[in-house]
């Protein structure tokens, strides 16, 4: 099984040269720590920056330079800053190559729920609905099951949806899966996890085609 960093490390392997990438809050943020050497990618934060750099050193924090998680950040050489409408033009206009975000539930048709639990405080969707509705390439980073052990990979989402038929790939602590018209297609197993484990933890349609390799995490 992978921990949060392992999930981030595996997703980092999906990055390609020259990509513009939007990372959501939580596990996705950790992906920036695992960019392969020599690969040029640029991170967008939807509050209005491209070329987001690492956190600042202590005493160098700038209140006027934050990411969408409201954390203090830095801007790399070559960064650009813009207003919120321009930022979402990049997103809606499909100029962003990859969006990675967390989820509470994903359905085997690619629906995603990650913004609201009925009966609990509603905080809002932020930019998640815009991101999932427009991205060509969406990877969900999440644990395979919830805290009660129930599957988060479902036939149908039970929670209010963030978007429909949009998730393309899921990386969990147990597996890498593609969302296909026939359901979740198992691509890789996490170290120490069997196909049977994954079947038991997946409620939605699961396609297991031949031998499933174990992930390679350096």
């Amino acid at each position: 099984m992978l921990d949060r960093n392992g999930i981030a490390q595996r997703i980092a392997q999906e990055l390609q040269e020259g990509w513009y990438v939007n990372l959501g809050i939580g596990i996705p943020t950790l992906i920036a720590n695992y960019i392969p050497d020599g690969l040029n990618v640029e991170f967008q934060s939807e509050n209005g920056i491209l070329g987001m750099g690492p956190f600042p050193f202590e005493d160098e924090e700038d209140a006027d330079l934050i990411n969408a998680g409201k954390q203090t950040i830095t801007a790399l050489a070559g960064a650009s800053i813009f207003d919120s409408a321009t930022s979402f033009a990049m997103i809606r206009g499909q100029h962003i190559n990859l969006t990675v975000l967390g989820a509470m539930e994903v359905s085997d048709t690619g629906d995603i729920a990650n913004w609201k639990i009925p009966g609990k405080m509603v905080k809002g969707m932020g930019g998640a609905m815009d991101l999932v509705a427009s991205a060509d390439n969406i990877i969900v980073a999440m644990s395979h099951t919830n805290r009660k052990g129930a599957s988060k990979l479902l036939k149908q989402c039970s929670l209010p949806l963030t978007g429909v038929k949009c998730v393309k790939k899921i990386v969990t602590n147990m597996a890498v899966l593609d969302v296909t018209p026939e359901g979740f297609k198992l691509i890789e197993r996490a170290p120490g996890v069997t196909v049977e484990d994954i079947k038991a933890a997946t409620e939605g349609r699961l396609i297991v085609d031949g031998d499933i390799p174990e992930m390679r995490i350096a």
């Binding site: 939807e46 207003d83 919120s84 409408a85 930022s87 979402f88 997103i91 809606r92 629906d111 969707m125 932020g126 930019g127 998640a128 609905m129 815009d130 509705a133 427009s134 209010p160 949806l161 963030t162 978007g163 429909v164 038929k165």
Partner: peptide
Amino acid sequence: PQGSLAERCRAGGAGIPAFYTPAGYGTE
């Protein structure tokens, strides 16, 4: 949705009374 909020403000200032967006389709 944040992008719709930004664009609704921009549209309001730009004399565009309404616009179509994929954000939020299929949701509440």
